[in-house]
Amino acid sequence: MLKGRLSGFVFQLLAFVLALVFVSLILIAAKASPMEAYKNMITGSVGSMRKFAEVLVTFVPLLLVTAGLLITFSAGLWNIGVEGQIVLGAIGTAWVFRQFVDSTLPAGLIITLAILGGMAFGALWASFAGALKTFGGVNEIFGGLGLNFVSTALTLYLIFGPWKREGVASMSGTEPFPDHFSLPQLPDLRISLWALGIALVGVVIVYFILQGTYFGLKLKAVGKNFRAAYLLGIPTWQYSMYSFLICGALAGAAGAIQVAAVYHRLIPSISSGYGYLGLMVAMLINYQAIWAIPVALFFAALNIGSIQLPIVMKLDSSLAGVLQGVLVLFVLLMEGVRQKFVKKA
C-alpha cells in the first residue's frame, strides 16, 4: 500500500516534470527562453503582495468550482454544465442586486441575499442537468454542455436587452452596481477576505461531506457502482440530484463572487472559464478534496503569472493554459503507465 502510494507520488512528479519539459520545448521552438518564462510567471504571481492578492482573486472561484465538482465526480457524474452554473450564479446575484438598487437596507444584508440568490440560481440550473439525466435519459455531459450555451445566450439577452445600459447596446456588460454592493476588500488589494472565507468554508464542507459522513459514503457508492448501490437500498437518482444541487450551489457562489467582488456587474464572460479549469483541477487531484487547495492555488498562480509573458517577453499568455492542459494529460497518462507497472508486479 505504502509502495503503491509512493509510486503514485513518483509518477505524478514525473508527470509534472514531463509537462514542464514539453512546454519548455514549445518555448524553445518559439525562440523564447523557458527559464525566463518560468521566472516571469513566478515573480508575476508571488512577486509582491498585490500580485498574490490577484492570484487569490482567481483562486476563490476556482476553489469553489473544484469543491463542487468533487461532489459530482464522487457521484460518478461529469458535470460539464458547471460553467453555466457559474453564469447563472452571477445572473442570480445581479438580479438580487437590481431589486435592491434603491433600497435602504444594510449593504451587508443585500450582499448576503445576493450571494444566496446566486447559489440558488446555480443549484437550480444544475438541477436541470440532473433532471435531464434522471428523467430524460440525457447524459449529463451533453445536457450540461447544452445548458452552458443556453446560459451564455441568457447572459447576452439580459445585457443587450432588459438590463442594458441607458442608450447603449454593447456586449461590454451592464451598468456597474453601486460601490456599497461590493464585498469589502483589503486596503489597496483587490482580494476580499469574505470571498476567501466563503471559498475555504466551501471546500472544508465538501471535504467533511466526502470523508466523514454517511451521505458522502453513499454518494461514493453511487459513483462507484450505480446498480450495486441501488440494490443495496441507496436511493440512487436522489443522490445524483443532491450532488448536482450541491455542486450547482457552490458554482453559483463562484459566480456570485465574480459579480460582488470582481466585476461588480454582469459581463458576457463572467464565468471566466473557471468551470472548465475546475474540471482540470479536479481531474488532476484525482478527486481528492485534500489537494484541492494547493492545486487550485497553483492553477490560479499560473493564470495570473502568465500575464507577465506578453508584457515582458511578447509571448502569448495562453501558455498558462497549455501548461495546465499538458499537466493534466501527463498526469492521466502517467497514472495509466503506473497501473500497468503495478499490475505486472
Binding site: 508575476g44 509582491s48 498585490r50 500580485k51 490577484e54 482573486v57 482567481t58 456588460g173 483587490r190 470582481v262 466585476y263 459581463i267 458576457p268 464572460s269 471566466s272 472559464g273 473557471y274 493564470n303 500575464i307 507577465q308 506578453p310 508584457i311 515582458v312 499568455s317
Partner: peptide, 26 residues
C-alpha cells in the same frame, strides 16, 4: 510597455484596472 487583447473574452478573469497595475509594476 503594452498589453493587447485586453477584453474579458481574451483575458478571462482579469479587469483592465488590474492589468494597468501590472504595467505600473513594470
Amino acid at each position: 510597455i503594452y498589453l493587447d487583447k485586453v477584453n474579458p473574452a481574451d483575458r478571462p478573469g482579469t479587469t483592465p484596472d488590474q492589468l494597468a497595475e501590472e504595467l505600473v509594476a513594470q
